[in-house]
Simulated assay, not measured.
Amino acid sequence: MKIAPIYDPEQRRETPQAEQVDLHVIFLVGTLLWLIPSIAFAAMFFLHGSFHREFMICIWGLIFGISGLVWELYNRHLYRLLALMQQ
């Protein structure tokens, strides 16, 4: 293990460049993945009449996913600009 990069900035490796990412796709896929089990649990609720806490977990996953999509819509320019500034 080399100790020189800790105290000598000249010995450090160059930091990697920031990548352009599209968080819209990530939030959308995650939300759709929460939608599948929530439909299954909703069907179980309507067929059997019993409420499962797993259904609420799926609903919270959908709420967080939709909130992430809304956040991404309003802040897309900020995180894209940050990646461009670091190049």
Results as ranks from 00 to 15, higher is better:
residue 81 L to K: 13
residue 15 T to I: 04
residue 42 A to E: 07
residue 18 A to N: 07
residue 52 H to C: 00
residue 49 G to T: 04
residue 43 A to N: 00
residue 51 F to N: 07
residue 7 Y to E: 07
residue 10 E to R: 14
residue 76 R to T: 05
residue 58 C to P: 03
residue 24 H to P: 00
residue 50 S to H: 09
residue 21 V to A: 12
residue 85 M to V: 01
residue 74 Y to D: 04
residue 37 P to N: 10
residue 21 V to Y: 12
residue 33 L to R: 01
residue 55 F to D: 00
residue 47 L to T: 08
residue 83 A to W: 03
residue 15 T to N: 10
residue 75 N to L: 03
residue 12 R to L: 06
residue 25 V to I: 07
residue 39 I to W: 11
residue 6 I to R: 10
residue 68 G to N: 04
residue 86 Q to H: 08
residue 85 M to F: 01
residue 84 L to H: 07
residue 11 Q to P: 00
residue 30 G to F: 14
residue 65 G to L: 04
residue 13 R to H: 09
residue 45 F to V: 01
residue 72 E to I: 03
residue 76 R to L: 03
residue 41 F to N: 06
residue 4 A to H: 09
residue 82 L to M: 06
residue 57 I to E: 11
residue 64 F to D: 06
residue 6 I to G: 05
residue 70 V to N: 03
residue 11 Q to K: 15
residue 37 P to M: 10
residue 76 R to E: 11
residue 17 Q to L: 14
residue 16 P to N: 14
residue 14 E to A: 13
residue 20 Q to S: 10
residue 31 T to I: 06
residue 84 L to S: 09
residue 60 W to V: 08
residue 36 I to Y: 14
residue 76 R to A: 12
residue 53 R to P: 02
residue 24 H to Y: 13
residue 62 L to M: 14
residue 65 G to A: 05
residue 45 F to D: 02
residue 7 Y to H: 12
residue 82 L to F: 08
residue 64 F to H: 10
residue 73 L to V: 00
residue 9 P to A: 11
residue 87 Q to M: 02
residue 71 W to D: 01
residue 9 P to E: 14
residue 19 E to C: 02
residue 5 P to F: 07
residue 68 G to M: 05
residue 5 P to L: 07
residue 80 R to G: 03
residue 49 G to C: 05
residue 19 E to F: 03
residue 68 G to A: 08
residue 16 P to S: 15
residue 52 H to M: 02
residue 84 L to Y: 04
residue 70 V to I: 15
residue 33 L to Q: 01
residue 47 L to C: 00
residue 15 T to Q: 12
residue 46 F to S: 14
residue 29 V to C: 03
residue 58 C to V: 01
residue 7 Y to W: 15
residue 2 K to E: 13
residue 48 H to P: 00
residue 30 G to H: 11
residue 8 D to W: 07
residue 28 L to V: 02
residue 67 S to K: 01
residue 50 S to W: 06
residue 65 G to F: 05
residue 50 S to E: 11
residue 83 A to F: 05
residue 51 F to C: 02
residue 11 Q to G: 00
residue 18 A to P: 00
residue 19 E to I: 03
residue 40 A to G: 03
residue 65 G to S: 05
residue 22 D to S: 08
residue 39 I to K: 09
residue 71 W to A: 09
residue 59 I to S: 07
residue 47 L to S: 09
residue 27 F to M: 13
residue 82 L to C: 01
residue 28 L to K: 12
residue 52 H to K: 05
residue 82 L to D: 13
residue 2 K to Y: 12
residue 20 Q to F: 06
residue 35 L to S: 11
residue 71 W to K: 03
residue 66 I to H: 06
residue 8 D to S: 10
residue 65 G to T: 05
residue 23 L to F: 13
residue 15 T to F: 07
residue 34 W to E: 06
residue 34 W to V: 04
residue 17 Q to V: 12
residue 20 Q to W: 03
